[in-house]
Simulated assay, not measured.
Amino acid sequence: MPHVAVINYGPKSDYAAILAELTGTLHVYSHNELKNTEGFARYEFVKDCEFVPYAELMIRGSARDQPFTHLITDNEYDLERVARIREDLGIPGQSLASAVSFRDKAVMKEVAGRTVATARFARLTTIVDLTDFIAQTGYPVVVKPVKQGGSRDISVLRDEEELIEFSRRHWREDLMAEEFIEGPMYHVDAVLAPGYRFVASSRYLRSCLGVFSGQNNGSVQLHPEDKFAARLEEFFDRVLEAFDVPEVSAYHLEVFHTPDDRLVLCEIASRVGGDRIPALTRATYGVDLHASWLRQSCALPVDQPPAGPPALVHGSVSILPQGRPVKAPGRPPFEWVHHYEVNEQLAPGAVTQNSTSHLCFVIVSGADAAEVEQRLLETEAWLMANLEEVPGA
């Protein structure tokens, strides 16, 4: 008899729908309040769940009465904790060593460097480690926490003046530095399991770091018959050859394409990509990345991905908070707009916090990446021209 524990982050997660066969066995501890939880064996909203040990304590206690057969999370920041509990309780799934290799960006690059090119990097204990690294690589350099996500707390230092300004900030004990790689960034999103393989490739519309200088961000899907998509998929497979991978997992790979035509690893995570990636995947392929990953992690069946090429591919652009009181306009007047959504939770005058911050976002369709990008830029221009000032806010 299945007995399933879940540590959740997403506010819209619907486990009664995703794991319908197991609803009455679910013990769900959630960082955000969820709906449709009445039939669960146990459900608790736990404030700051990903930062406090309460869920782990409760799961370990419940396991003494009835062992869990599965323990899952869709939250990147809980992958290590869940892996540790699994190992202690003898539950199958990703090991702690595997989780760490995908979570710690320095370990990640050490491992991936066995099979693919990566940016040069160094862990930072003191400012001297940073200045030594700059002396070796030159400017610019990227400084970031080893276990952060969403482009949070990343700094790009381009000269001595920016280094001095960086030295005025509170020092963190979890930093690394890496060389700055020129070129557009692509991402590969996948779910792999025995007898199941889904892999899709996309290009970021702009650098994820561009949001901190006011650039709207988004993604443009590559058509699966695009030769570059095949090259990215082959690179993805070579990256995974270096890692201890779980039997079932989702992956989000980011890779630079340099001006001299090299592919260089940025990062790879063993979880579903964020922002609009799941929505784009559903629109093009009819594949729900979260459901496919979590259902197969609980030994539940899923439909195979489509065998043939899609009729259309999709892309998205998110309009950033403007730092002043503005209102998003109505739906853009273009027939290629697949979906448009306004962030009703955003406070007037909000500023960008990370790469997923948005005032509104739009998903458009097209025959290939070039058409999708052209339509995204046209739609973005319309949205920016039609933002409405909010008087008195």
Rank of each mutant, 00 (worst) to 15 (best):
M1H: 10
H3I: 08
K12E: 11
A20T: 09
E21C: 14
T25R: 13
V28F: 03
V46E: 06
F51N: 11
A55M: 04
M58T: 05
I59H: 03
Q66H: 03
P67S: 13
F68L: 04
F68T: 06
D78A: 14
E80K: 08
D88I: 03
D88Y: 01
G90Y: 02
G93F: 00
L96A: 15
V100A: 11
V100W: 09
V111M: 05
A119L: 07
R120F: 08
A122H: 11
R123D: 12
R123A: 03
L124D: 13
L130Q: 05
D132F: 12
A135Y: 14
Y139C: 11
V142S: 13
V142N: 14
V143C: 06
V146E: 02
R152Y: 12
V156F: 12
E161D: 08
E162R: 04
L163P: 02
I164P: 01
R168D: 12
W171R: 15
M176C: 15
F180A: 11
I181T: 15
E182H: 04
G183H: 08
G183L: 05
M185V: 15
L192N: 09
G195P: 10
L205H: 09
S207I: 01
V211C: 12
H223L: 13
D226G: 06
D237C: 03
L240A: 02
F243C: 08
D244P: 05
E247G: 00
V248D: 02
L253Q: 05
V255L: 04
F256S: 07
D261W: 01
V264I: 11
L265E: 07
V272T: 13
V272S: 02
P278W: 02
A283W: 02
H290K: 12
A291G: 02
S297Y: 03
C298N: 05
A299T: 12
Q304K: 05
Q304L: 13
L312R: 13
I319M: 05
L320F: 07
G323A: 13
R324I: 13
V326G: 04
V326Y: 07
K327T: 06
V351L: 05
T352Q: 09
T352F: 08
F361V: 03
V364L: 00
A370M: 12
L376C: 08
E378K: 14
A385Q: 13
E388C: 06
E389A: 15
G392N: 06
